[in-house]
Design a binder for these strands. Structure first.
Lengths: 193, 193
DNA sequence: CACTATAGTGAACGATGATTCCGGTTGTCA
DNA sequence: TGACAACCGGAATCATCGTTCACTATAGTG
């Protein structure tokens, strides 16, 4: 609780910077494997540092988790921005984006959990990034609407809810569940009649 | 761990039977409110019994939770069976069933969590009940197919995945999320073109 | 090469919560 | 109305984890 994050401009010492990177990477892996119930000790061990070091960089488990989720949204936004440069049929561009985001989601249990409802605060802290993602998604939707290939009443949160639901399906062990199929149906649902 | 459940035929003593019912009822309420992170002590307190008594009836928190989820599926099955007696347009009957199940889901955080992916074992133990639910759903789908009002490629697990996704959306605090809307879209997705 | 602010370490702490255990109760049945 | 098995109660136990802290190590600087 000494300082929320290293918002100070004073540059980190070389070893600190190195360790922070290591910690982030390990956290990505550990949380991806076990979701948010993974332990800080595991993160520390995998990063080859002491727990104390993890806490120096992220004062709380939640802060660490939050940072990861935030970064994930940044990546989603980047993907969306990239999609905006594509020249294909707008609906297909959007559909492809959803598919590739889904594939990324599959690899990352932590973000998956974040998407499927765990941790209000974690989510709240990424509001800015989320906002941008929604706005970019809105742009993609707008193009598809102009082309008349998407349902006229679709809004960005519809995509958000769809992806949220999708990650729940992914996480679910029920027999017969097949998220690829669910995603196909979902995408079809967005299509204009 | 003395005995897994009271599978013995020996009838329970009157007070035991009474307490078991009380416990179940309290558990329903407590878990409905707080989801699976609710504490056994809360259940016991609300039921007006000691923790030990709860453990006598359900050797584990998970066992208790499992029983509740199982019962919930029984109720879903009952609702489906009841829907089968309706004479309206088959697609609408199915849609109504989904809506009323969704409404019930909204009231029950525990089942919601079970649906959105938490607790493999809890889920696994209800396989039989699930199987029946799927089968009944299949019948409803079949009728709608005969009427030509549902997509021809829909199978029961599609409904399952949809409801699973829906509960994730429900549980999610993201701004702009509206599960009623999501459900409407989803139902529309099932409709024949 | 000192010196010191920054970093790192990991054993110890504290809170939480599931589960156990055993002395005391109470149905039930002869 | 005993007698006893089945039950109940809830303090105590145990395990798990996040978090802290007193101490040591080391980059960076003059």
């Amino acid at each position: 609780m000494t300082d929320i994050l290293s918002h100070e401009d004073r540059p980190l010492r070389a070893d600190a910077r190195r360790n922070r990177e290591r910690i982030l990477q390990s956290a990505r892996e550990v949380f991806a494997e076990s979701g948010s119930e993974a332990q800080i000790d595991d993160v520390a061990r995998r990063a080859g540092v002491g727990v104390g070091t993890v806490y120096r960089h992220y004062p709380t488990k939640e802060a660490l988790l939050t940072e990861l989720v935030r970064q994930k949204f940044v990546r989603f936004s980047a993907a969306a921005r990239e999609a905006l440069t594509h020249t294909g049929e707008p609906f297909d561009v959007l559909a492809d984006l959803m598919r590739s985001n889904a594939a990324e989601l599959e690899r990352d249990a932590a973000t998956q959990q974040a998407m499927s409802g765990i941790g209000e605060q974690v989510w709240a802290a990424a509001t800015d990034e989320l906002q941008e993602l929604l706005s970019l998604t809105g742009e993609l939707i707008g193009r598809a609407k102009a082309a008349g290939t998407i349902r006229a009443d679709i809004v960005p949160t519809d995509i958000g809810m769809a992806m949220c639901g999708l990650s729940a399906v992914m996480a679910h062990p029920a027999p017969g569940f097949d998220w690829h199929r669910h995603l196909d149906l979902t995408i079809d649902m967005l299509r204009a009649r």
